[in-house]
Design a protein around this nucleic acid. Structure first.
Lengths: 210, 210
DNA sequence: ATACCTATGTAACTTATGTTACTGTGTAGT
DNA sequence: ACTACACAGTAACATAAGTTACATAGGTAT
């Protein structure tokens, strides 16, 4: 039994289930930037996050991309399979936002455990709920906020996730995740700096008094 | 046993489950424009759609709104509860797009049946999947398409749902659902008419050669 | 130091979208 | 017919965002 599994999921799952997870799950440690799956890889598994954070991006076939949400400790993402199975014009990418530890569960276990363990059923439903809410939050941002507000929200989220006021990222990478252009991001960041909300540096941004 | 229930869900659910649904569910007939729920009403129930179509809208507290997706025959929407429970800045509205028949299921049955019936479990998971995919589709539209493309997609969707090339709607109402202004919609519609894709009339639009 | 690459700053311009304001027209009610 | 109102057409303008182009600064390899 991996102790970390018990620490993270012990309050949710009974021992029998924890043991099953331990037996059939594949433990993985990935470092920042690692691509967890892309266009159909890893489709047959569902990740349980032990520590770290995973960012989930939408990507259409023009190469345009957009940040959907982050998975954090204790999260899972049943959607990973959904989307890759549906396979339409667009795809989902999952990239480690920070160094992360996770357990990959074969999806065939999903149904089996749903029948056997009430706690697992709850967990999966709960996960869907969370994902749906994150998606709604994303839709709200894109539909109702202007780019400067989205940018600020994005930066605050980054700080929250990494628990670090220093964000190591380039303007270009922010532009990709918010699906806009580098020039626009540079412009708006400069405005935020003028307002005293951030401090700009090469390759990193320092968040102030949020 | 309501025959329509059996017709629509007989291939999915075993008789025992159909009977339970028939016993605890509330059969409802609503006509176009009926508001199925708003800000916390109907939270304790989950709709099973028998016929017709329901549109699901997101609404923030400035009164801004946005069409999320449609529910059609055979669909359900476990999300309805999710969002209303979460209760953040925004809310979800559900409005009958056409005359519809549906059965409202008390949500306490959801867990009970999930334990008892594999078919129900599948149905609920499937429903979540579908909802997530619809949401992704919506995100794609808002994030990657320009307003004229979104408008055309919207009109085509309307035609598909109602199986009718005549769309009875005002420019203002389209503007609400796509979260833009009436003038913008009028402008773009006129452009589509010039291109020969539609024909504009007072209170309705005729779709041509799609 | 030199060359080279990446990241950033910024101006100047284009385009899409949002806003305001006014017009005309069909429809319903009196 | 007259009035009132909802709906649609359109011009003129404002703003947000996207684009192109170029300058400069920091870092790295040689």
């Amino acid at each position: 039994m991996i102790q970390e599994l018990k620490n993270n999921y012990g309050h949710l799952f009974e021992d029998a289930l924890l043991n099953e997870i331990n037996q059939v799950g594949t433990f993985k440690e990935v470092s920042e930037g690692f691509k967890l799956m892309e266009i159909g890889n890893y489709v047959k598994a569902m990740p349980l996050l032990i520590s770290g954070a995973i960012k989930i991006l939408r990507e259409d076939n023009n190469g345009d991309e957009l940040l959907l949400y982050f998975l954090e400790k204790g999260d899972t993402c049943a959607m990973t399979l959904t989307c890759c199975v549906a396979q339409k014009k667009s795809n989902i990418r999952a990239i480690a936002e920070t160094d992360s530890k996770l357990i990959m569960i074969p999806i065939k276990k999903m149904e089996e455990w749903s029948e056997k363990y009430k706690s697992w059923r709850h967990f999966v439903f709960e996960s869907y709920h969370n994902r749906l809410n994150e998606m709604l939050e994303t839709i709200d941002s894109i539909a109702f906020l202007k780019m400067d507000e989205r940018l600020l929200k994005y930066l605050v989220k980054k700080v929250t996730i990494s628990k670090n006021k220093t964000i190591h990222i380039t303007h270009q990478d922010i532009a990709y995740e918010l699906h806009t252009s580098r020039v626009v991001i540079s412009r708006l960041l400069k405005k935020l700096e003028t307002l005293g909300k951030i401090e700009l540096n090469r390759n990193y941004i320092l968040m102030k008094d949020i």
